[in-house]
Design a protein around this nucleic acid. Structure first.
Lengths: 244, 244
DNA sequence: TAAATAAATTTCAACTTGACAATAACTAAT
DNA sequence: ATTAGTTATTGTCAAGTTGAAATTTATTTA
């Protein structure tokens, strides 16, 4: 903060917005919630849900509100973390806009979107976003790339990935989430051992999941434990064999 | 981004500022650069260097400029990372201000401050900030706590700590920086071995540092290597014996 | 030449990892 | 009821990493 004599008209006017990256897992595919723009610049391009922060509104509250308005998501337990702030002078052709980006993982929302002013909300596979073939508004491609990387690295050393589940989950389901998010294959036995050796990372519910219709031993169910960090962290390693 | 019909007067006016947390090491003590406020609210309290972002200025550029103006620091190699954005509606009593905080480590600056409008810049020990006894302006205490924690955790898995040095350094000097920053003691042999086993983390210069006047084998000198990450990371562990 | 000092290397047991084998607990089809 | 198929969980073993501490190396000062 400078200490020039204070005059309310001194400061240059900025618009401040929030944008939210919502990650979810649909049948072993990592997807992100985007909205197709109906007007303004970047018409028909895909954009992140978000909008202007109100004059007396906290940033995080704005993110929660916009998410509710635009996509009808209002998870009590939404973990919503700040990702970063994007403020290049040319990022919006109309005016100077600084946007504060947030991200969160939500449990499986396939098409439960709609309501509010969700013009054309859809969950788009991350692979499509990463391919660069999708037309994205503003600097949202950069925000998305950063969010995906943030999620991938937080999965190494925290329990964020438990947020992909509404409720309890099996170790296999948990491993599948990692494999999809990292696009790797992980050794099932070693993955299980690693999670087990930090006793408080996952809490067993005592229940067992019903076996698949294809048979197999029923799996133990877990929820996120009190210990939120994993040390040393999991390693991404091992590239997956390219599909088809 | 919402898609309401666009009107430049629609958006609420915000001031956007940047604040910068500069960390440095002065003789085995971790310190942070603060400025004593001369006027306005929080007069005489300590504050972070920073100020308004100019209308066509990028956020990072604003941080670099304010740092230069207020503290005369203009390191070419300044690594300056974004820390987070703080925008609580009550954080500045005068008006709505959203501030984007940055942080960086700079090599040993004891009193090289001054020049510019550096009213009363000083480097303050982190212990003093963490004690809560220092009167800090706005929400700068929170920003500082976050920055300190960010630095501590990035030291676990990256080479950021090499930025405490102007030039080359010995393993002991490097270890001292870790011990001061984490307030721990680290086993010298194990620390050395850990750094060595990632061959590209530190690059030996081939030079040797002159022995202390107290004698002892001369230490090999190193600079930051091409590999910026350490995996698995270093561990903080081992609390230091409380000093008197 | 003998301490004293500090850096660098070694030792050794305990633990963790990676690859993979074996066992357990189920379902579906004989 | 038995057997084959499937999936989860536990075990094995060699290689690698860690934590604690000792040893060796290269200096300076007495």
């Amino acid at each position: 903060m400078t200490e020039k004599p204070y005059d309310p008209h001194d400061y240059p006017p900025f618009a401040v917005t929030v944008d939210v990256v919502i990650l979810t897992m649909v049948k072993k595919t990592l997807k992100i919630l985007l909205i197709q723009r109906g007007q303004g610049p970047f018409r028909d391009a895909w954009a992140l849900p978000g909008g202007f922060v109100l004059p007396h509104e906290d940033l995080r509250d704005a993110a929660v509100r916009e998410l509710k308005e635009e996509t009808n998501i209002s998870d009590e337990a939404l973990h919503l973390e700040q990702l970063g702030t994007y403020g290049s002078p040319e990022r919006d052709p109309r005016m100077r806009v600084v946007t504060v980006a947030y991200w969160a993982i939500v449990p499986n929302l396939d098409k439960p979107i709609g309501g509010g002013d969700a013009r054309h909300a859809e969950v788009v596979p991350v692979a499509e976003i990463e391919s660069g073939r999708l037309r994205l508004a503003f600097d949202h491609e950069k925000i998305l790339i950063d969010a995906i990387e943030r999620m991938r690295s937080k999965m190494e050393y925290t329990n964020v990935a438990t947020n992909f589940f509404e409720d309890s989950f099996t170790v296999s389901e948990f491993r599948n989430v990692y494999e999809a998010a990292w696009d790797t294959e992980l050794n099932p036995g070693n993955f299980q051992r690693k999670l087990q050796q930090s006793a408080d990372f996952l809490t067993p519910t005592g229940e067992k999941s019903p076996s698949e219709s294809s048979g197999g031993r029923p799996a133990d169910l877990y929820t996120a434990g009190p210990e939120k960090d994993l040390s040393p962290p999991l390693k991404r390693s091992k590239p997956k064999k390219p599909s088809k």
